[in-house]
Design a protein around this nucleic acid. Structure first.
Length: 855
RNA sequence: GGUCGCUUAGCUCAGUUGGUUAGAGUAUCACAUUGACAUUGUGGGGGUCAGUGGUUCGAGUCCACUAGCGACCACCA
């Protein structure tokens, strides 16, 4: 007998198993001989931190599909990478040098800063890679990419150059979102909105040549320094009399035109709005349309500019206070009102965004020569990309439809610097610096999503690389829904433009992992769960299961330690099934193939039949990307059928070959979900074979499906459960063997053992409790122990239930509409069901008679 | 304002193209047990599938509306 520990020792074994897989070489698709291919370019995590649950959950899904496809005999490439993650990484590193050395990036200078951050990222990447391996992802590390790698960068740059040549990028002065803390422009997507308590200030603007006033309401009085008009709705009768007239801007004594624009809501505030084109997106638009001057009064540090006169140099909040005081002195502040207001904040640092006019680079999403927007919409509409869940297709379509030009220049240092050079009024856009003297390179770097948006093909060596030829378009892309717009939409647009093809055939969204209360996990709240700590405590397999089981795509899920613990117990259960097998016989081994001849007992036929049904169901679910359903089905087979019933019968009527076969197939079926424990067990049994990871996914043997055996076994189970039930409700000592009489019975041994009774063949004595399932009857010698009244009540309830069912089913089976419209299979099944109910009813009535006789 | 979700057992969630008497995990209660099982086994209780209406022979599943919750997008001067 082999000695094997009571549970899987994941703490020491996981690392060895991962090393074994790496050594086997099969993470690398070049080592796999197969015609069919499967590729998933993995989303690169930001190379500035730690592996968190979001990564863990995504990787688990990616790995499950990857391992499944590999076992199905495909050349599988899971291509890992890291993202330089422009702004977030810069923010992290700036904090670091401030804290550790008291330095700013300016102290270091651009070049030195970049070098340091680069080294930092490489170091973090090593650290994170080790973490990624812990979750078990079967990625080809030899192909790992970084967004700043030369080849990857070059492709991204080329795309920019081409787009420039195709008239799809332009540089222009526009109102943009400015983060004063990060010191850069941001795209609309990088701006969040938050509701804050604010004040609405009503300010009186004197009307020129009169003693009247027009009152405007604003939450940002400091911007009035840059006002260039007051606008009202053209249908607002209150202001008709001011057509063609002017107001005087207080504090600056400047004449402002009164303009009419239908974008002004006459029911909001006073219906009159101060227009500051330089510091408000809507005002900017109105300013453009009415040819208004833009006066920048707030600078990039969120301080008042020279144009702000005496308020120059003050921070916006300080200026606001001073301006309000001055207005009060002049009697021009009519009133203040507390309101809730939506403000824009920086996604990364939560600083209030200052909208201001700035010269930036933009991608035109709807250019004349090539419309990124239209092409993407069309590709999605054509259904070339399968969305999981499907409704995210709508979300994507809607977002694309309303897409504006995308600001891609960032005034940070960490990232791809624009391949643009200037000399006087000359501009040069190209991959390499232009020849000649006096050129200076554009200071900006690309929005990080511009390079990651090209990840699907830039990592594969577009356009000539072997991987690109082999694996593009990729098969699968998996990400959290929170980066749907940031990433997947941009990947679709940029890939279509650059390669003419969709980047991936399937787009699968995972939900967010929340805490037990459904709250978002975050460092500041301290409610986060560290996946690595959990792996250490419960094992990677348990963590994997807890992240994907009973979870559906795109739907958020909650995670808490008890849940992981439950899955750890399941891993232990699986382990012990194999431990039992090993201990049951010194010769036990896994069996690859069996034939019908090997099936001896009813239980053998039943379990093999169930195995085949399970294989078919699991494969079907997996092909539909239904991870959770696959697992649920497998779990039921493993625990409720195999462990609870078959192994119990196997203790009575051993059939090592059948058990060995079932366990052989079971390991394969579980492997994509629980790679470590299954590989470990496989290694114990199949020392000389290649790794389980490369074993062939089970094929369904239809001829082994045996409905008759399944039916007979169900009868057996019913009888046994009935006896157990009686024992439980009357607390009959488990040691007491109830005597049972019957004329003739199959599977006597199994019934006796599993329900702890002693069967005597022969006529039953008087006053015995009868039980029955289908045609099988047993008389139990416990008439004295039971409460006849209680049993009759229970039986009565059951009889009534059956009668109701029969009435309902009978009505259905005779309904003409049903007969003419329903599918034949359904009709047959309904009739069969009806017969079954009737049979059952008959049995119950017999039992009722029996009970009456006992009273 | 627009869009998209969610609402199923005490809790956390599944529910595959509409078709058995709606499931699992967990919790709880009773009994048993250290026998492959960091426990496990057996059994019980627990749901008018948010509500209303519709389509259908048949609705947890499809449609409409309502309510509550959530998210996203836009805008809020």
């Amino acid at each position: 007998m082999q000695e094997i520990p009571k549970q899987f020792n994941f703490q020491t074994d996981e690392e060895k198993i991962y090393a074994l897989w790496e050594k086997s070489g099969f993470f690398n698709p070049d080592k796999i001989r197969a015609k069919q291919k499967y590729c998933n370019v993995l989303p690169p995590p930001n190379a500035n931190g730690e592996l968190h649950l979001g990564h863990a959950s995504g990787y688990t899904v990616m790995d499950i599909f990857g391992r499944y496809e590999r076992m199905k005999g495909k050349k599988v490439l899971l291509l890992p990478g890291k993202d330089h993650a422009g702004i977030p990484t810069q923010v992290v590193y700036e904090h670091k040098i401030k804290k550790e050395r008291g330095l700013t990036r300016q102290d270091l200078g651009r070049e030195a800063f970049f070098k340091e951050v680069y080294a930092f990222c490489i170091d973090r990447a090593d650290y994170m890679r080790a973490q990624e391996k812990k979750i078990g992802i079967s990625a080809d590390w030899s192909r790992e990419k970084f967004t700043l790698d030369g080849d990857v960068s070059k492709i991204a740059m080329e795309t920019f150059v081409r787009m420039y040549q195709d008239g799809m990028v332009y540089k222009g002065k526009r109102i943009i979102n400015w983060c004063p803390r990060c010191g850069t422009a941001l795209s609309d997507l990088e701006v969040l909105h938050a509701e804050r308590d604010a004040k609405f200030y009503y300010i009186k603007y004197p009307v020129k040549n009169s003693d009247e006033f027009i009152t405007v309401a604003t939450t940002r009085p400091e911007t009035m320094l840059g006002d260039t008009a007051v606008a009202v709705n053209p249908e607002d009768k209150r202001y008709f009399k001011y057509i063609g007239r002017h107001v005087i801007l207080p504090l600056k004594n400047k004449e402002l035109p009164i303009i009419f624009d239908k974008r002004i809501d006459k029911d909001f505030g006073t219906g009159a709005v101060k227009i500051t084109p330089a510091h408000d997106p809507l005002d900017w638009q109105i300013g453009q349309d009415h040819d208004l001057e833009s006066i920048q009064v707030i600078d990039e540090q969120a301080e008042i500019t020279l144009a702000g006169g005496k308020y120059r140099g003050q921070g916006v909040l300080q200026a606001r206070e001073n301006i309000l005081n001055d207005l009060k002195k002049l009697g021009l502040l009519e009133k203040e009102e507390a309101i809730k207001s939506n403000i824009s904040i920086c996604e990364r640092c939560k600083t209030t965004i200052e909208p201001l006019i700035s010269e930036q680079w933009f991608i035109s999403v709807d250019a004349e020569k090539y419309s990124l927007k239209k092409e993407a919409l069309e590709a999605i509409k054509s259904g070339k990309i399968n969305f999981y869940p499907e409704n995210f297709q709508k979300v994507m379509t809607q977002w694309l439809s309303g897409l504006h030009d995308w600001c891609i220049s960032r005034q940070t240092w960490w990232g791809h610097r624009f391949p643009v050079w200037y000399r006087g009024k000359e501009i040069y856009v190209g991959l390499d610096a232009p020849k000649g003297e006096g050129w200076t390179q554009d200071e900006n770097v690309f929005d990080t999503w511009f390079s990651s948006g090209q990840w699907a093909y830039s990592t594969l060596g577009f356009p000539k690389g072997k991987d690109y030829q082999n694996f593009y378009p990729t098969d699968m892309m998996i990400m959290g829904w929170d980066i749907l717009f940031f990433w997947s939409a941009r990947m679709i647009m940029l890939s279509l433009y650059r390669t003419g093809k969709i980047p991936f055939k399937n787009l699968y969204f995972t939900g967010l992992i929340r805490d037990k209360e459904g709250k978002k996990m975050s460092k500041s709240k301290g409610n986060g769960i560290d996946p690595l700590e959990m792996i250490k405590k419960y094992g990677a397999d348990a963590v994997r299961l807890s992240l994907v089981m009973d979870v559906s795509p795109g739907q958020d899920s909650r995670l808490y330690e008890e849940k992981i613990e439950g899955f750890r117990n399941f891993v232990t259960k699986l382990w012990n099934i194999y431990r039992y097998a090993l201990q049951s016989s010194s010769k036990f081994k896994l069996v690859e193939k069996i034939s019908k001849k090997d099936l001896k007992s009813l239980a053998d036929k039943w379990i093999v039949s169930e195995l085949e049904e399970t294989k078919a169901a699991v494969s079907g679910f997996m092909d539909n990307r239904e991870i959770s359903l696959s697992q649920t089905r497998l779990r039921r087979f493993t625990w409720d059928q195999l462990a609870a019933w078959y192994i119990e019968t196997n203790k009575i009527e051993k059939n090592e070959k059948v058990l060995g076969h079932v366990l052989h197939e079971l390991l394969k079926l579980w492997h994509p979900f629980m790679p470590f424990v299954t590989e470990k067990i496989w290694g114990i049994f199949e020392k000389d074979k290649k790794v389980l990871m490369m074993a062939q996914w089970p094929k369904v043997e239809k001829k082994m499906i045996d409905a008759k055996a399944a039916g007979s076994f169900a009868v057996l189970q019913e009888l046994i459960i009935k006896i157990r039930n009686i024992r439980a409700s009357y607390h009959i000592d488990s040691a007491r063997k109830i005597e049972a009489y019957t004329k003739d019975i199959a599977e006597q041994g199994v019934i006796e053992k599993l329900s702890r009774i002693k069967i005597v063949i022969g006529r039953s004595k008087e006053k015995m409790l009868r039980i029955s399932s289908k045609g099988v009857k047993l008389s139990l010698d416990i008439a004295k122990t039971i409460d006849v009244k209680k049993e009759r009540e229970a039986l009565g309830k059951e009889i009534k239930n059956l009668e109701n069912l029969i009435a309902k089913t009978e009505a259905l089976s005779q309904n003409e509409n049903f007969l003419s419209k329903a599918n034949v299979d359904i009709i047959n099944a309904t009739n069969a069901r009806l017969d079954e109910y009737k049979q059952k009813l008959e049995i119950q009535k017999e039992l009722e008679e029996n009970l009456k006789s006992l009273a």
